[in-house]
Simulated assay, not measured.
Amino acid sequence: MASLINLKTFTDDRGNLTVIERVIPFDIKRIFYIYGVDNSQRGGHRHHKTIQAAICIRGHCIIHNNNGSAESSFALDTPDKCLIIEPEDWHYMHSFSEDAILMVLASEYFEPNDYIYVPYTFESLLAAYEKV
């Protein structure tokens, strides 16, 4: 399941310095960022292999996750919050502020076959719940 980590931030009279060092649980192979989003949702997929770290470096957005047995939503509203998204997390992003810039660090290079667009169904969630 996706989890939030706090990035180390140093603050003084000059401003803030946030460091991403030794906290990302994978080697970074790709970086992309999303901005200028209207009222649309972004994402809407999960992966076979890729782990992602999402940081809203400006503005705010919400990332909704479903790993097939639990659902959760995370508000990314400060640049020191980092959401680790596991491959099994079917996720989408929404409620972007006008000034939002969402930066994503990825464990894999872009590979179209790594994407799974079909969301988990209610039946799969119920079956997972009944196993517990």
Rank of each mutant, 00 (worst) to 15 (best):
G15R: 07
N67V: 08
H60V: 02
W90F: 10
I62F: 05
Q52M: 11
N65F: 05
H94G: 08
G43D: 12
S73P: 04
I57S: 05
D27C: 00
G44F: 09
R22D: 15
H47A: 02
N39R: 06
L105E: 05
P79E: 06
I31F: 13
V19Q: 11
S3L: 09
R58K: 09
G15L: 06
L126T: 11
L17G: 03
P119S: 03
I5T: 14
S69V: 04
P112A: 08
L4E: 02
Y115W: 04
I55A: 11
F96R: 00
S97Y: 07
L76P: 04
M103D: 03
L83P: 03
M93R: 01
D27N: 13
D80Y: 01
A53M: 11
T11A: 08
V23F: 12
I28F: 06
K8Q: 08
C82W: 13
I34H: 02
E111D: 15
I55M: 06
N39I: 00
D38V: 03
G59V: 07
G59T: 09
N6G: 09
H64V: 08
N16F: 07
H64C: 10
E86D: 13
L76K: 07
D12M: 13
T9N: 11
I63V: 14
G68F: 07
D12Y: 13
K8C: 02
C56D: 12
K81T: 05
A106N: 01
V118E: 15
